[in-house]
Amino acid sequence: MPAQDPHAGHSGDAEAADPSPGPLMEIPPPAEAGSGPPRAADAIWGADAMAASRKALADTHGDFAVLWVQGDRFEMQTGEGGDSYLWDLQGYYGGPTSRFWFKSEGEGETGAALEEAEVQALYARAIAPFWDLQIGVRHDFAGPDTTHGVIGVQGLAPYMFEIDAALFVSTRGDLTARIEGELDQRITQRLILQPRAEAELSAQDIPALGIGAGLDRFAVGARLRYEFAREFAPYLGLEQSWRTGAGAEYARGRGEASSALKLVAGIRWWF
């Protein structure tokens, strides 16, 4: 006679043959789920006590103000056209949906007068996840003093591109625009390569500012930084810039090159 299976006839065989009911998440919720009052705890603890608890929860996890400041580019540049310096600072104070933004950019040649410098004060309102609409003023305080109205958008585009685009209207009626984009490519947990591009455009020639109509300036570059801490990262990089059209003519008229390749070294920080 063939040997019998020692497990034959045990209940485990029947259980193994039955289909699995699946995890609990696949079971539909009971019909009464969600049918109770929206704030049932008020009936137990009282509305006043629960209002204080809900406020504490919102203060901890909800719409509360924070301060953030970042020095995106604090650098020295050397190469065609001589040595120069540059700063690019921005930050905000506010909650997740409405904020006060402040920005400042400037540059100049080493040992010479400041060539370009600006500050911006902006009110920002969230218009989509990761995107702010910004409205405010900009003032240039190097060269001819100029004040502009500003409207722009800033945020995180698909594939993690950080975009900052703005339209400027000066008190003289000049219409200009600027678009900046950058992407962090993480090589290791601390070593990051950041390609970056920037374009400046104008609706008209502005001889007083040396700006030409159309695409006035375009720059592309890459910076390799090492984060000793998340808040502190020195970097090295290369940047190539071009002036085009009338902007190139204005630059050559001032004895400047219409294009330049520069080696850059700087520090990126935030708190």
Results as ranks from 00 to 15, higher is better:
residue 38 P to V: 06
residue 77 Q to D: 05
residue 65 A to N: 14
residue 67 L to T: 04
residue 48 D to M: 06
residue 40 A to I: 14
residue 30 P to S: 02
residue 60 T to F: 05
residue 79 G to F: 02
residue 72 D to W: 03
residue 32 E to Q: 13
residue 33 A to C: 05
residue 78 T to R: 09
residue 50 M to D: 01
residue 79 G to N: 04
residue 68 W to D: 00
residue 44 I to N: 07
residue 41 A to H: 06
residue 69 V to M: 03
residue 53 S to G: 09
residue 50 M to L: 09
residue 57 L to T: 08
residue 41 A to C: 06
residue 57 L to F: 11
residue 78 T to I: 11
residue 38 P to F: 00
residue 52 A to E: 15
residue 38 P to S: 10
residue 46 G to H: 07
residue 35 S to H: 08
residue 35 S to C: 06
residue 80 E to V: 12
residue 69 V to R: 00
residue 54 R to Y: 13
residue 34 G to R: 05
residue 42 D to Y: 00
residue 30 P to Q: 11
residue 54 R to H: 09
residue 38 P to H: 06
residue 43 A to K: 15
residue 45 W to N: 09
residue 44 I to T: 14
residue 33 A to G: 06
residue 60 T to L: 14
residue 63 D to H: 14
residue 41 A to M: 15
residue 82 G to M: 05
residue 76 M to C: 04
residue 42 D to R: 06
residue 52 A to Y: 11
residue 50 M to A: 01
residue 64 F to K: 10
residue 42 D to C: 05
residue 48 D to W: 02
residue 60 T to D: 10
residue 41 A to Q: 11
residue 47 A to C: 03
residue 77 Q to K: 08
residue 50 M to G: 00
residue 59 D to V: 04
residue 34 G to T: 08
residue 32 E to M: 12
residue 53 S to F: 11
residue 45 W to T: 08
residue 44 I to M: 10
residue 57 L to H: 10
residue 37 P to M: 07
residue 44 I to C: 01
residue 77 Q to P: 04
residue 77 Q to A: 14
residue 73 R to K: 15
residue 64 F to E: 05
residue 66 V to Y: 00
residue 47 A to W: 02
residue 76 M to P: 01
residue 72 D to C: 04
residue 54 R to N: 09
residue 44 I to F: 15
residue 68 W to R: 02
residue 82 G to A: 04
residue 36 G to I: 03
residue 30 P to W: 09
residue 73 R to W: 01
residue 37 P to R: 14
residue 63 D to C: 04
residue 52 A to M: 10
residue 41 A to K: 07
residue 32 E to L: 13
residue 69 V to N: 01
residue 41 A to Y: 13
residue 80 E to K: 14
residue 34 G to L: 05
residue 46 G to I: 12
residue 76 M to V: 13
residue 79 G to P: 01
residue 31 A to K: 14
residue 45 W to I: 08
residue 43 A to T: 06
residue 45 W to Y: 15
residue 40 A to E: 09
residue 44 I to V: 15
residue 78 T to M: 08
residue 47 A to Q: 12
residue 46 G to N: 08
residue 79 G to L: 04
residue 59 D to M: 08
residue 48 D to T: 12
residue 80 E to M: 07
residue 47 A to L: 01
residue 78 T to N: 08
residue 73 R to V: 01
residue 50 M to W: 00
residue 78 T to P: 01
residue 46 G to M: 05
residue 31 A to G: 09
residue 58 A to T: 13
residue 68 W to G: 00
residue 70 Q to C: 00
residue 81 G to L: 02
residue 42 D to V: 00
residue 70 Q to V: 00
residue 32 E to C: 12
residue 47 A to D: 14
residue 34 G to V: 06
residue 79 G to A: 06
residue 56 A to F: 11
residue 50 M to H: 04
residue 30 P to D: 09
residue 44 I to K: 11
residue 54 R to P: 01
residue 79 G to E: 03
residue 81 G to W: 04
residue 74 F to W: 11
residue 75 E to I: 04
residue 32 E to K: 14
residue 46 G to F: 09
residue 59 D to T: 07
residue 41 A to P: 02
residue 43 A to S: 14
residue 35 S to E: 13
residue 52 A to W: 09
residue 78 T to C: 03
residue 61 H to N: 10
